[in-house]
Design a protein around this nucleic acid. Structure first.
Lengths: 120, 120
DNA sequence: CGGGATCCGTGCCGATACTG
DNA sequence: CAGTATCGGCACGGATCCCG
């Protein structure tokens, strides 16, 4: 853990720019939990993701080699997504982070004041 | 690791909304590496963070109880920041994620094509 | 069913100027 | 030194329409 930043590339910036967006982690956790899934099922599981963002994020994950996209030549079309080995190797670290969140997020929310209300 | 999402709060969304922004993790890693630091030193270490974003992010981290802010009644003013116990407890999980990034980011960058060039 | 293309609002963040 | 205040760009992401 050196002082990476400031020169070329920084692993913190890299990992955050890839996985720090609104939907990437949610999709990967969903795929890890449910295994291979179809486009529509992922969308229904997450619930409030738009078609556009699901497509965009899936494409990005596929490009990065974290998920695989498998198209079946049928009508109606069927496309299935699943984690790659690399994608799978990321999950323990995420779960570790989620574990921390489950322990401390209640306190953090309380400090910050829950008077932000519903807002949505 | 259940299907948290869609109802009330989701630990993934929580943790990402708190730590997923551009500077939070960088500041925490900096503080973990260097220990107690002054405002100006943090800024110089990170290099390209603006005064505004450093202030805003530090305040947010303080509110969440991840760092402590200690003001000394001197002239010129001196303010020191350091990780709290809670903040410290987060770092191993981050380092674990950074470790993963160091192993796989090169491949990911290669896949994505480094033809995005410099851009900055 | 599983997208692609387009338009557009919001909010993050940077730049700048000023202060105790 | 360590901020606060204000303005504004621009990218992220939502809504909508269309297609094979």
């Amino acid at each position: 853990m050196e002082n990476f930043h400031h020169i070329g590339s920084c692993p913190i910036r890299d990992v955050l720019s890839k996985l720090g967006d609104k939907w990437t982690m949610l999709i990967m956790v969903t795929l890890k939990t449910n295994g291979t899934m179809r486009f529509c099922d992922i969308q229904k599981t997450i619930g409030d993701i738009s078609q556009r963002m699901l497509t965009v994020t899936l494409r990005s994950l596929e490009t990065d080699g974290l998920i695989v996209r498998k198209v079946y030549a049928e009508v109606p079309p069927r496309v299935e997504y699943s984690l790659t080995e690399t994608g799978y190797s990321l999950m323990p670290h995420i779960e570790s982070l989620v574990g921390w969140a489950l322990e401390h997020m209640a306190d953090i929310m309380e400090r910050r004041g829950v008077r932000e209300e519903v807002r949505s």
